[in-house]
């Protein structure tokens, strides 16, 4: 049976001056699939994810999300797509001046203007319960631990019930136990809501546990792709360098 593609990246190029970050990058993301983009620091993983969500404009190439090209969209169309594509920022990007409740309400009110207060409250509580932090609803981000902030950021991403979630280094800066909890949460969310996810990471534990498919980003291109088990056996030295540590 042919899988339904929710996102296609075709021949993507992005440079900053003489620094060519993405060179003819190609990727397909299918419905209900978790794809991890694996690459070294500074390899262009975050640039890729920011091109997908429209925060950066690619120099060349096309990104098609739900059969519509991001590059051809105006602001209004792009906002509609953004309501269906969640983005978990590496730094969490919680609004410091807002409580947890206000942080979660913000995207709701922005994307769904006609939503009632009762519906907003219900959705906020549901998203917080999904990440196990309903008790933090009136707290400020500064009062939360790193792991809690990551969970709240995830709840804010989930609140719009996105079809695709983009995770930018979801376990960076967390201890291994908290990192594992976040990965478990990501897997649970995928199962519960049947979301597709593009996960940017260099954490091999995250790659192993969360991926259905792994894409190795090397020197701006999609260097290798396959399941974790496939790539673990790959003899190419450039691929092997990522997996050596995992084997050890």
């Amino acid at each position: 049976m042919q899988q339904e593609s929710v996102m296609t990246i075709a021949h993507l190029y992005k440079s900053f001056g003489n620094n060519h970050v993405l060179i003819d990058f190609n990727l397909n993301l299918f419905k209900g699939e978790n794809v991890v983009v694996l690459g070294r620091s500074g390899s262009g993983k975050s640039v890729l994810i920011k091109c997908i969500i429209g925060l950066l404009k690619p120099d060349k190439g096309d990104i098609v999300v739900f059969n519509e090209s991001i590059g051809k969209m105006g602001e209004v169309e792009l906002d509609k797509v953004r309501a269906r594509v969640g983005f978990l920022f590496q730094s969490n990007a919680l609004y410091d001046s807002m409580t947890v409740r206000q942080n979660l309400e913000f995207p709701l009110r922005r994307h769904w203007l006609a939503v009632t207060q009762d519906a907003v409250n219900k959705m906020v509580m549901e998203a917080l319960e999904d990440v196990g932090l309903a008790h933090t609803i009136e707290m400020m981000p500064v009062e939360l631990s790193g792991g809690m902030r990551k969970r709240i950021a995830l709840a804010r991403t989930l609140i719009l019930k996105p079809d695709i979630i983009l995770y930018d280094e979801p376990t960076t800066g967390l201890d291994s136990i908290t990192g594992n909890e976040i990965i478990s949460l990501m897997i649970d969310i995928q199962k519960k809501y049947n979301t597709s996810a593009l996960i940017i990471s260099h954490d091999m534990n995250c790659v192993r546990r969360a991926s259905d498919r792994v894409v190795v980003l090397y020197e701006g291109t999609c260097y290798a792709a396959g399941t974790y088990a496939d790539l673990l056996l790959n003899e190419d030295p450039k691929v092997k360098q990522f997996f050596e540590q995992a084997i050890k």
Binding site: L55, R82, A83, F87, F89, A93, L94, D96, S97
Partner: peptide, 21 residues
Amino acid sequence: AELGSMKVTEQIDAMEVSGTN
């Protein structure tokens, strides 16, 4: 300081992603 801090912690990007100019 407020906008600078929002910029470096990606809060401004998060706002854009949330359908806000």
